[in-house]
Nucleic acid binder design. Structure first.
Lengths: 198, 198
DNA sequence: ATCTACACTATACGTTGGTCTAGTCAGATG
DNA sequence: CATCTGACTAGACCAACGTATAGTGTAGAT
């Protein structure tokens, strides 16, 4: 499952996550041991130390329940910048994660892109804004979409036309891009929100 | 401060919240005591038991760090709308809470205001946006501030001038407001970010 | 003048829980 | 075959921690 962990380590990590979610505080070594039926706290302790060494957990030595899950970053991954050449769309490659509530922007899978330039300025999306995209491969006319075209990601208004698609910017200075049905165009998702950190 | 709590109890609760946000796990009785300089863990323990009795905390007896904040919702409180007449600035009156990471917009105490109208449209702040405000009573020239004036909250650019302050909108259609040094004007905080949910 | 609520100090008890030493066992690797 | 890694048992040490008893001081209400 998760990068470089043994099965048992994944299970332990998952349990700690779950415990934290349900109880609001992290489990002790012995609580982990009890969950898996270990007769010795040592077994659980070993796994937790392994998880720590692999960077999935942080803990304060000697202190009970002083645990922190740091490995699998939760939240919305910031996958790169728009119009900056082929961003990698794997979660592991995320530059950063926006750690916010699961359904903050509604339901679905989300990612974020950092906007470069002023091409969507009339939609009040400015340089440096993080645009939240809901992952989907379909879009309705007029929606703001993140599309992959010619190995580049752009944010545009989506308008299907005869034999193709028009991608309109929200800036009169930026010309509309007409894409024929033959050219490869992949919709990555539609805009679901925006975060600006001044 | 918060409903039915003594000053000290509020402080203790706030510290526990902050600790949880920063450390990822709850503090022990002694860590609370250390924070406030108590020479005895008993003092902290008493406050925590009081908070528990008043329903702000839950704890598992005998277990270290087995704490749970249940009373006050976490996150950034949405305190009301801008330019919509005297919003209540008590945390209890929050309409909603933006449940996101503690230091998402940097450090400090934050609240959010829902923007009504187009008065800041040139700053690309549009109707319905949630503007994140860092609580502080000072501002530097040019910063976007939330100010309380005549029992109304507005979002404006802050410009100190001779014998007063100018509050400029980011929309040419909205006239600049000149406020004399005599008129009561209270800075609630400065803009630290923005959240738009499309 | 007494009472009660609040905020604490001083000290201590007993348990919980992180961590240690010292092993066993199975499966994979060289 | 020996060695290594992963997963565990058994038992123990002791610091950290929740909790208790007993008491001080202060401020406001009765």
């Amino acid at each position: 499952m998760t990068r470089g962990l043994t099965d048992r380590q994944s299970q332990v990590l998952e349990f700690i996550q779950q415990f934290l979610g349900e109880q609001g505080y992290p489990p002790t070594v012995r609580e982990v041991a009890a969950r898996f039926g270990f007769r010795s706290p040592r077994a659980a302790h070993d796994h937790m130390k392994a998880l720590e060494k692999k960077g999935f957990l942080r803990s304060e030595p000697g202190l009970p329940r002083a645990l922190n899950i740091i490995g699998p970053p939760r939240g919305i991954p910031v996958l790169g910048s728009i119009a900056a050449g082929a961003p990698i769309l794997a979660v592991e490659e995320a530059e950063e994660h926006l750690d916010l509530e699961a359904d903050f922007f509604g339901s679905g899978r989300f990612f974020a892109l950092k906007v470069r330039g002023e091409s969507m300025i009339d939609d009040h999306i400015q340089d440096g804004d993080l645009v939240i995209i809901r992952s989907q491969d379909q879009a309705r006319p007029g929606e703001v979409v993140a599309v992959l075209i010619d190995d580049e990601v752009t944010l545009k208004h989506f308008h299907p036309v005869k034999d193709g698609v028009e991608l309109r910017a929200a800036n009169p200075a930026v010309p509309t891009l007409k894409v024929g049905a033959d050219r490869p165009l992949r919709i990555l998702g539609v805009m679901a929100g925006l975060v600006r950190r001044s």
